[in-house]
């Protein structure tokens, strides 16, 4: 049972990771992250259920398509609003999210779909039985995070990304193609969302609004972890997942959905910088 909470938390964590990556690099907050998740799930569904592709092939296709889409989004739209107030960007991504949902409902219809996966069995580990669906989420998250960690620390482009998010101007002067890096970061962030969407699909089913609820809780997770911290996002996600689980089990009806937000508000009131973040101030 605890695994379910952790697994759902992992999904929140992955989406929160997407927020944090983009925020660290570009100072934009992408409110359409949840809808990228939804797009990922739909593309995978289309490939697997409609075209009859193999699960892993569909998985790969969805990740690649959504990643490219993320990069395209950065190039065509978001680059134009860099330097405008943050609020404009927030509204822009909200608008984009609404467009994606409409696109999905026109393309795939507003029905609810079920994705069949290779993970419908159960595994017994140390005497406890776990559902494969949830296990796949946890394992997938660990793998993805490991890959990202290695990518950011051991590849040239990963290090360039780190440099860019710390000081754009300096990075630019050192010959790092900052714009390209931004597109790359968007692609990675979108791909993370797509992975989260596909992993989540068997648990919550696929429909056009699946991203919304997840994104809101992922927000809570990102803030909980301190908006600029990558491990914070994951820990925050798992914390939110567990809070939700326990609130649903031990508190009266209705608290399950509100509990993460109550925690979030309390957190913001008491420690606005989150668990792992730090607050700075503007230099004058």
């Amino acid at each position: 049972m605890l695994l379910n909470g952790v697994a759902v938390g992992c999904i929140y964590g992955l989406v929160a990771l997407g927020f944090v990556l983009i925020y660290k690099a570009t100072e934009l907050v992408n409110f359409a992250q949840g809808d990228l998740l939804m797009l990922g799930a739909f593309v995978a569904y289309m490939a697997i259920a409609w075209w009859g592709w193999d699960y892993w092939l569909g998985f790969g296709l969805a990740v690649v398509v959504v990643a490219l889409f993320g990069a395209l989004l950065d190039r065509s739209v978001l680059r134009k609003v860099i330097g405008q107030p943050q609020f404009a960007v927030v509204m822009l991504t909200i608008g984009l999210g609404a467009m994606f949902r409409t696109f999905a409902s026109v393309t795939w219809g507003s029905e609810i779909y079920t994705l069949t996966t290779p993970f419908d069995g159960k595994t017994v580990i140390a005497g406890a039985t776990f559902s494969d669906q949830y296990l796949s989420i946890v394992v997938g998250t660990i793998l993805l995070c490991g890959t990202l960690y290695a990518f950011f620390n051991y590849t040239r482009i990963g290090v360039a990304m780190q440099a860019t998010s710390q000081n754009q101007l300096a990075a630019y002067y050192m010959g790092i193609p900052v714009k390209l890096i931004f597109s790359f970061i968007w692609a990675i962030s979108a791909a993370t969302a797509a992975v989260a969407g596909i992993l989540l699909a068997p648990v919550t089913l696929i429909d056009i609004n699946m991203g919304l609820a997840v994104a809101l809780k992922a927000f809570a997770a990102a803030v909980l972890g301190g908006f600029g911290s990558i491990p914070g996002a994951l820990v925050g996600g798992i914390v939110i997942g567990l809070i939700e689980l326990f609130a649903g089990r031990f508190l009266p009806d209705g608290f399950k959905d509100a509990a993460p937000y109550v925690v979030l508000l309390l957190m913001l009131a008491v420690r606005p910088q989150g668990l792992f973040g730090s607050l700075g101030r503007k230099k004058v």
Partner: peptide, 18 residues
């Protein structure tokens, strides 16, 4: 189609901001 209205609002929002 259902949900188109929200998309049009979103499109207008994007266009106005840009």
């Amino acid at each position: 189609k259902p949900g188109v209205e929200a998309g049009i609002l979103g499109l207008i929002l994007v266009l106005v901001i840009l």
